[in-house]
Write a protein that binds this DNA or RNA. Structure first.
Lengths: 379, 379
DNA sequence: CCTACGGTAGAGACCGGTTGCTATCCGCGC
DNA sequence: GCGCGGATAGCAACCGGTCTCTACCGTAGG
């Protein structure tokens, strides 16, 4: 007979219930209530007849011991652990934060907890994170943000989709294209290309013919789709975007600031800037204003995403509204109730342009509040 | 012998390893590798001598079965489940989002996962959420945001602190006052009162004598501290704030907009507005500008928190910088390495005023970039 | 040639809650 | 008075890893 095998417990098969130093168990509660562990479990579950007097005894004992169930033990026996995992590049981006809120709200409404994982800006870390989520046996793994258009990456994600599916879980892709037919994954996307098309159309119909695109990310699906809409809108008028005006860069404020400064002093000719995201646009606006150019009179600026800051910058920013919270909510909803969307598990939410001051053409129609074209009023 | 006892498994004590429909276990791997479960476990753990040939066989089997450990089973046996819980009102607030990033980064660096829980704007829901976290056996439970100054609430939190402590976990309070001596909780706070004091001092030294305070929340610790600093700065000059200029409200952009509109038409006399948070300040700025008043010439505006939008509004916003990410990181670090801060487990980080355009006095010293008083340069 | 010992691998008892089957107690009808 | 059935409670076997103890192997020393 050895002493001190594990921590401070099991000295003699647990003499004291849980006075100090350790949480109490079902068996502690059972002992105190004078019943068996099964009975306590049934009181916990509620789905079994337990005599009123017995239940009262058990509840009293639980209260006295300040008992809470061990979620791991419960998850081990049962099928699910009631958790939804949410994988994102960076929570501080307002765009992702709002999707996160949607996910968390819906998860909470469905009685699920929410694990947050970030990849610290490195999309390849997603692979490691998803692996960890498999270990956690989450009900659903929701991956947000553009995907790398890279075969090895694609294959790994496909592999995870199957692995999660085998384990009874579900991979959900938000804001990225499907992995292909036959791959067990749910896709919740928004009309990325259409939004860029509409926004570019707005600029073109405002007379702009040389529009700079700031923030292309080669190999990123989101970027490719926005460029596609940008190009298609040009082509509709028999035009083509000038490749010299399409600049590569990351989705950050500081990139927007730098790129706009350089563009302004480059001598290139342009009358409007399509920033790939609102974050980039805020940097662009600062640079343009510092250069003493007026927005929108000298240069029109537009963004994408419609994050809250779009209403706070000066001038307020024309952008494409993306239903962020709804994306998050739909992701959880579809993952947990897979029968709701039988065909293909691919949902696409609409986007629409929100016109604000940064692209407003001088004229009699300049109203005070936001106005909207090509879609319902949003704000 | 009964059939179909549980889900689709255990038909005959698991004939097939894990062809389909279920994840594979240590025993599956063991069977395939021709070793015992213990050996597989030892390969997983790595902390035990396993012959090279055996290890190779096991690794091969794991790869072939696409095996991942079950985190719950592991957590059940072991002491900890390597998870840190993060409880916050609302992830979409940039202030909290940046703290969240700090938490997540540090948790990740310490090999921990991060659970995100939100209270949907209802601080009382914290109690329910913390209860859930006890069930999850998280290594630490980090609660962020102002506390209700309410005895029942305080008592419940104290209770949780003890309960978590008994279970080997740790309660961490970020940006809220300690629960009292003897309560096992770690506190990571910032100099809330000092920041408000410095900012108010800046306004007073700019000649402002009637400063409106927008966004007091009665009963919220954060609010009480900011008001205290606001008041102390007045008293230092033998002044007292006018109670008529201290307005109650929530920490939102729309409150700021509404309150500022009403204040501007109320006929009350004032030359500066101290918004309780930057979010409120953005609304205030919009209202002031819509009313045709100039900032800072007619009315100076200042905020609190130094969230990114403070640099995007026009004019840029003077505010108090709070080291958000560092708060998050410190919370995790102190919770996991409790010996690092032996005395009292109470860490207070500094704050400093960041001067920007919204309070700038016209004069020769108006430079282009941000400038800072009362502390190191930040932006 | 036998024993001792370092190095490895296996058996089995946990962790804490759930659940199918069984056992018991009660009242009631025959 | 005895048997029967409904309502409850208990037993024990899981869930999937981990860990301790023990058994076994080969080899080196006596």
């Amino acid at each position: 007979m050895n002493d001190m095998t594990k921590g401070s417990r099991a000295v003699a098969k647990r003499t004291q219930p849980a006075l100090n130093g350790d949480a109490s168990t079902v068996r502690d509660v059972a002992a105190r209530a004078g019943v068996s562990a099964s009975t306590v479990s049934r009181v916990l579950g509620g789905t079994y007849p337990v005599a009123t007097a017995t239940r009262a005894k058990v509840l009293k004992a639980m209260r006295e011991l300040d008992y809470v169930v061990n979620a791991h033990a419960r998850a081990l026996g049962g099928a699910t652990n009631n958790t939804v995992a949410f994988v994102v590049d960076d929570v501080t981006g307002p765009f992702y934060a709002h999707i996160a809120r949607g996910v968390e709200e819906q998860a909470s409404a469905e009685g699920r907890l929410c694990m947050l994982c970030t990849t610290h800006g490195d999309p390849r870390r997603i692979l490691a994170v998803v692996e960890t989520m498999r270990e956690q046996r989450a009900d659903a793994v929701i991956v947000v943000g553009g995907a790398l258009q890279d075969k090895a990456y694609h294959d790994r994600m496909t592999h995870f989709a199957h692995a999660l599916d085998r384990a009874g879980s579900r991979l959900v892709l938000v804001g990225r294209p499907p992995l292909g037919p036959g791959v067990p994954a749910t896709v919740v996307d928004y009309d990325n290309e259409g939004g860029a098309f509409a926004l570019t159309g707005h600029l073109l119909s405002g007379g702009h013919r040389r529009i700079a695109y700031l923030g292309r990310v080669p190999g990123l699906s989101t970027s490719a789709q926005r460029i596609a809409g940008f190009t298609r809108a040009h082509e509709l008028l028999g035009l083509a975007p000038d490749p010299e005006l399409i600049l590569d860069g990351v989705f950050s404020r500081s990139y927007g600031y730098q790129a706009a400064r350089e563009l302004l002093t480059s001598g290139k000719e342009f009358t409007a800037i399509f920033a790939a995201t609102d974050m980039i646009a805020t940097g662009v606006i600062q640079a343009v204003r510092e250069a003493g150019r007026r927005i929108p009179q000298d240069i029109a600026v537009a963004g994408y995403d419609d994050i809250p800051v779009a209403r706070d910058v000066h001038p307020t920013l024309t952008t494409v509204h993306v239903p962020q919270e709804e994306l998050g909510r739909a992701a959880v909803r579809l993952a947990l109730h897979r029968d709701e969307l039988p065909d293909g598990q691919h949902l696409v939410l609409g986007t629409h342009v929100v016109l604000r001051e940064s692209t407003r053409r001088p004229g009699p129609s300049s109203r005070g509040a936001d106005f909207v074209a090509l879609g319902p009023v949003d704000s």
